[in-house]
Design a protein around this nucleic acid. Structure first.
Lengths: 218, 218
DNA sequence: CACCGGATGGACTCCAAGGTCCCGTTTTCC
DNA sequence: GGAAAACGGGACCTTGGAGTCCATCCGGTG
């Protein structure tokens, strides 16, 4: 969860550069394939072929498929948080949120809403099947929401947001709108619902902005 | 999609009462099992056992697993729409929306947010794997949103909602909040995020209510 | 009441996919 | 530079689960 490296190897024995590269190729292939086909519908042979490795490599680096999936959960979590950190850690204004929204929408519109969020798509498939994966995903969502709520806290501290705004709840609402938007966009193969959902959440946050016309006494 | 009966049999030959009962038992078992384990992780043997039928029954009523899944999509769609129609077709006030929200939250809190929405959980698993299932799910979501937007239209026509409220967009936003809320609640095994998400959407709708203090000239 | 087609049970086949193993190659460390 | 261990290829094993088949049962109809 909290590793700096994107792909954290199970460090129980020495590992060479080549080994790390192979492990990353496997994870990368699993990442791509499982995003479009789903976890259960992707076979190890698919991954072996796409990653240009062999069966023994898979089992050299991962005990079994479940462990590979768990590693993928960390891998994706790290990727998403890294990307989101870049977009959110300097968030200080409402227009920053709008830019963030636009980037997500644009990325998802490239494939007409298909595939959805890498984390959300795993969640429904894994959460009732692998408790460990579920809790890791849950923590990743929490960390993601924290990136948002931290930004909102900064906005509140600087007087942009009213004092009665609750950054945590706003962040949860925004995340739910994002994930629900991904899901509806995926079902419709069209980004429009995702835009509507995000705009609703942003509008809601906007309603907590201190109006320039208000508080003129300060 | 638009059948009145919950379980619409493939009417290519005559079918007895007993046959219908068996088909329903199969669909009902598939419904329950696939909700908790997911579609791909549920085997036909699981369904056979849970429905107290035999292999020949499954293949007597459904050509293969894919067709069973597609039938399940219709089955669930009909169930959800039937349930939602009961709760939404007389929607005329904001407090009606709150009651609707409370019913959903309470139902989901019974299992601590697990399993999520029957439609949403299938969507991410099937939409990139079975185009026919995807479009059926998409239509079901659209019909569900229409139940909401129809209610909002009634509220707008009766002067409760401002004229600049867009019932379709509000309904989409509410649905996204609901689905995203289900997803986060499922990940967290806790209904709280779902409540926050729904409250955000309701708050947003509330902001379009005609204020009693406003429009006093009418 | 005899017949026929749908309904049913359950053994069986077959294959895809997870997992094992062996042996050769490369890297690392002393 | 040599031993030990990581890395790698791919044939092979095993099993779970989808799908088939056939004998039997039942129930409606002439």
């Amino acid at each position: 969860m909290s590793d700096e490296q994107v792909a954290a190897p199970t460090n129980r024995r020495r590992i060479s550069q080549r080994g790390i590269a192979t492990r990353d190729r496997i994870l990368d292939a699993a990442n791509r394939l499982m995003l479009v086909r789903g976890v259960n519908a992707t076979t190890l042979d698919d991954i072996r072929e796409a990653s240009q490795t062999s069966k023994s490599q898979l089992y050299h680096h991962f005990a079994d498929k479940q462990e590979l999936v768990r590693a993928l959960v960390s891998y994706r979590g790290a990727l998403v948080l890294q990307r989101e950190r870049a977009g959110l850690e300097r968030l200080r204004s409402f227009s920053g949120l709008v830019r963030w929204r636009n980037a997500l929408v644009q990325a998802n519109s490239l494939n007409n809403g298909k595939y959805g969020c890498g984390l959300g798509s795993m969640t429904l498939e894994l959460s009732d099947q692998d408790e460990q994966a579920r809790s890791a995903l849950s923590e990743t969502f929490a960390a993601w929401e924290r990136l948002i709520s931290d930004g909102l806290h900064r906005m509140r501290d600087s007087g942009l947001l009213r004092q009665d705004a609750d950054p945590e709840k706003l962040a949860t609402g925004l995340m739910a709108a994002l994930q629900g938007g991904y899901l509806l966009a995926n079902a419709a193969h069209n980004v429009a619902p995702m835009e509507v959902a995000l705009d609703m959440a942003l509008e809601h946050i906007k309603s907590f902005l201190v109006q320039p016309s208000e508080e003129p006494t300060r």
